[in-house]
């Protein structure tokens, strides 16, 4: 039996439901690195959005509870995949690490939990790839190089902003570009790589999001992209599902499939079947047909 290293992992709500293909592909890809994504037990919602008001600590309790549980399970590092979870957990962690008074208040309020000692670090899976495993390790696992595949890296907002917790340069991010290159694909430069998709406005202002979906996806297409990659389940909904909605009102729109970065890795590693591509509104399977055959033969 191969020894698998456990790392503690926080999935968040989407990876258990609408973004199941994100989780399944991440688990499969991690196995290639002999890493077991050990799910944090009894995790709760991260809150999805970091509270920006200075006077209300209630909204910080959810993230802090997750940090406490990571520590209770004996880990000092908690890994994320969803960029919104990553952002909320990192910002709350930063807040309580820098403000002892606020941390005391939160600890005093949560009398059923152990105190949080501000000693857990949140890391995104992309940081694991780039900083711990390094790109050469990723390249070593590629069995289907993505030769000739043009990939638009869509960073969105939460991976790189604010700069205090961002995992890359907010103006010129490169982590996705480096990942695509290590998989044998070609990253394309496109002007909307860090532009907001409209986020949660998709609930009460669908039209506004549709306009932005069109700008971003058509922009990627015009830049020559065959596919867009993301780390955010909400961006995925707005670019994938809303792109299908867009096609109903703008039939001339040339659709571009949207993948989670781990799904692209799974294709390159020869495991396209784990990605649940059939659940995507813009079906990417045609793009990977030769690779998928290789994958199913393995």
């Amino acid at each position: 039996m191969i020894y698998m290293k456990d790392i503690l992992y926080y999935p968040g709500c989407s990876l258990k439901d609408t973004a199941k293909g994100f989780e399944d592909s991440a688990i499969k890809v991690s196995e290639e690195f002999e890493i077991n994504l050990k799910e944090l037990s009894r995790w709760n919602c991260c809150g999805t959005v970091y509270s920006l008001t200075d006077d209300n600590l209630m909204k910080q309790l959810g993230p802090v509870r997750n940090l406490i549980r990571a520590r209770d399970e004996g880990f000092d590092r908690l890994y994320t995949l969803c960029s919104m979870c990553d952002n909320t957990l990192k910002r709350t962690n930063k807040l309580v690490k820098e403000d002892e008074e606020k941390l005391d208040k939160i600890n005093n309020f949560m009398d059923q939990e152990n105190d949080y000692e501000a000693d857990v670090e949140i890391r995104h899976y992309l940081e694991l790839l780039r900083d711990e495993l390094e790109w050469s390790t990723v390249s070593d696992k590629v069995v289907n190089p993505l030769e000739g595949l043009n990939v638009a890296p869509y960073y969105g907002c939460m991976l790189t902003r604010p700069k205090e917790i961002g995992l890359d340069d907010p103006h010129e991010p490169s982590v996705f570009d480096e990942l695509v290159e290590s998989l044998g694909g070609t990253p394309v430069d496109f002007p909307y790589e860090a532009e907001c998709c409209g986020s949660y406005n998709t609930v009460d202002n669908e039209e506004m999001v549709l306009r932005k979906t069109q700008t971003i996806t058509a922009g990627a297409g015009k830049s020559g992209a065959d596919v867009i990659i993301t780390a955010c389940p909400l961006c995925h909904f707005n670019l994938d599902r809303r792109q299908a909605d867009l096609l109903e009102v703008a039939p001339n729109h040339d659709p571009v499939p949207v993948l989670y970065f781990t799904q692209l890795m799974a294709v390159a590693f020869g495991h396209p079947e784990v990605s649940k591509f059939e659940e995507h509104a813009i079906d990417p399977r045609e793009l990977f047909e030769p690779e998928m055959k290789v994958g199913s033969e393995r």
């Binding site: 968040g12 609408t18 959005v49 969803c82 949660y200 406005n201 009460d204 909400l234």
Partner: peptide, 13 residues
Amino acid sequence: LPEIALVSNLRKK
């Protein structure tokens, strides 16, 4: 609508 959209929207609005 996915939960991530609903939770974030209701928390902000």
